[in-house]
Design a protein around this nucleic acid. Sequence first.
DNA 1: CGAAGTTTTGAGGACCTTCAAAAGTTGTGG
DNA 2: CCACAACTTTTGAAGGTCCTCAAAACTTCG
Lengths: 266, 266
Amino acid sequence: MTGKPCLARYLSRLEARRPLSAAARDKLMALPVRREEFAAHRHIIHEGEPTTRSCFLESGFVSCSKGLRDGARQIVSFHVPGDMVDLQSALVMISDHGVFTHTASTVLSIANADILELVETSPEIGRALWFDTLVDAAIYREWTLNVGRRSAVMGTAHLLLELFYRFQAVGMTSGNSFELPTTQADLADALGLSAVHMNRSLQSLRGERLIRTFQRTMTIENMEALVDLAEFDPVYMHPEGPRDHGRPPAWSDTGAIGGRSVGAGA
Amino acid sequence: MTGKPCLARYLSRLEARRPLSAAARDKLMALPVRREEFAAHRHIIHEGEPTTRSCFLESGFVSCSKGLRDGARQIVSFHVPGDMVDLQSALVMISDHGVFTHTASTVLSIANADILELVETSPEIGRALWFDTLVDAAIYREWTLNVGRRSAVMGTAHLLLELFYRFQAVGMTSGNSFELPTTQADLADALGLSAVHMNRSLQSLRGERLIRTFQRTMTIENMEALVDLAEFDPVYMHPEGPRDHGRPPAWSDTGAIGGRSVGAGA
DNA sequence: CGAAGTTTTGAGGACCTTCAAAAGTTGTGG
DNA sequence: CCACAACTTTTGAAGGTCCTCAAAACTTCG
């Protein structure tokens, strides 16, 4: 994986959703990137810092988090290799969240100005990046539900399943196992729990034979029961890619959306 | 406000952030829209329904929410007039959340296929819509913090301030007052609390003379103290508009983002 | 092998929930 | 304009989930 750093992996991720034209592909690959390496447990960006570059995560595992004055921390997202981290900040001057490595990570960073220029010259890529942030937003919504309305055990189950699916999508699982790159305290910060209660929630899942842990590897022993407990439905992560309006599905644009139609478009 | 329904208000909202070319403006205004009216307490879209149209909220107040099997509900966002609700679903086949009116509302709905076509022919508009969803995502992050790490009273204070600022931005406040269009149970669902505890949190804020309520109107009595209690900083809503990469600020793209640079771009 | 970090355990307490009912408000129809 | 029904807000009391503090067992790493 040495040599000239390049975004081929991001390209293939975007194209798995929807093919790009050769021109768009070339433009994306021509983007000047800089490979940067970070040790584990380092801040890539601090909350409140000016944002100048967005990061494509080539390898490793990072989280985005926000803090409170009293030191409390809420992790708002995790990112696996292949994710564009912090596309959030491409249009924004100051980062509203920090980015933190949980394992040694390598990142391809891109100047935000370059991304914006690319987007304005290639609508296709603009759409692909837009879709990327829509998926992020859908995951945020699910996390709000996790934190707000699911019990500790349920939320933990849901989070573990999300991590499993996302690792699986990038080939980092074997069977029903994956290497959990976080501490229990990190998981707690993602779910708005204390570390102690996170520990007890995991014990509860182990006690029910839903999961098993050995050192850092986490294996899902009873997928069906865990999915059922968590009310987990992976569609919110939209692994399938965006709708293709070139070939609209049968039900597309049929009828009103439920309201009383009182006007017609131009 | 009768006559041919049109998106002029959305246009001006987008342009407040960043001017559009005349061509882009025309394309946006040419979008076929349909005005639809909904009574209060109606579902515009149910969770799990196919998404065919996105909605611009012309007047009224709506929330987006997700449910659990046991009937628990988490509100994931509120929307004031001028918001594009459910742009989220433009690229997605099935809605992962419901949209619900809290007051009588009128909506201009646009076929998703039309939005996608517009975005692919006008990068400027693509960028504007992208920015819109980035702001939504930033608000989601703040809500996750609200629900996960802020206490009930703090979270309530934060939510009320967010509503105040968003109403203010569309001219729906007078002084430090606004009409709260939700019940306490709705606020509770937004913060992951019970209605009873929401009531007690509001009583606590009233007791400290931070807010005052009379019928449906909510007034902020001590803005400074409320902001301090909530650790509220409105920048997360990005009222100021996106960065303009045509005129990058002085610190733009200076130096590395913190890592050890080991490669250079093409 | 020692030091630092992580997981686990226990006990007590705080925050928030649930259930239930009363008081107050809003909307509807006669 | 009043009466009634439905909804919303408020209050009380009991209980559960989750938190804090603290220390021990275990793991990881230099």
